[in-house]
Amino acid sequence: MKDNLISIKSVTKSFTKGKTTITPLENLSLDVPRGEFLSLMGPSGSGKTTLLNLIAGIDTPTSGEILINGEDISQLSRAQLTKWRAVHVGYIFQLYHLVPILSAYENVELPLLLGKYSKAERKKKINAALELVGLSDRADHRPSELSGGQEQRVAIARAIVHDPDLLVADEPTGDLDRESADSILNLLNSLAKDHGKTVVMVTHDPKASAAAHRALQLEKGQFSSEGHLLNTSTQ
């Protein structure tokens, strides 16, 4: 039996916009084993970002269960979810969203400010994270002094610095050139393969999706097809 980090059971998400009720996800179930790099694909409005937000604890489902590491996060309040995210989730955004007035080092430090770490412990963790993404020599640089690929690497370092089990990435290569995108995908793959992180990535890019262990296609809030395990070179 597989050790699932994520187990989604019959989840429905709906909301009202004006007088219309919109249901981006309906009765959806999904299991994601620990250490898997999963790609979610689909056209705009298919519900993939909604699913990602539910998995990351940014949003809550209308019905159903979302078990992450055995904990049903659909029952948590907004404040509880915030605390939960601080420990268990690393979020990677399409546009990196680094704080422009902070250096790479300080950006990576942000999630650690929420925990009880000494300055020395923080320094050790930040340096390790920056080394893992290959940016040790850019620690003092501000985002404006980095390329897009480097900014996304800093964002990944920020997402992993507090050692979460789960990494969620929303179009992480959507704003990058091919070379930088491949480099980021290799990094995400390595985080899953070598560091045991479970990575869930939303993408429009079939090439990016091909880098994942498994790819799922979403259409109108339902999985339409499941991709296969990819080439062994990335695993």
């Binding site: 990351a56 940014i58 907004r78 404040a79 915030t82 605390k83 995210r85 601080a86 420990v87 989730v89 979020y91 955004f93 969203h97 704080v99 942000l110 999630p111 929420l114 920020r158």
Partner: peptide, 16 residues
């Protein structure tokens, strides 16, 4: 607005 949301996504509480 967006940056505030990013901070919350990272785990910063509303109080913080």
């Amino acid at each position: 607005v967006k940056e505030t949301a990013i901070f919350q996504t990272l785990g910063f509480s509303r109080m913080a």
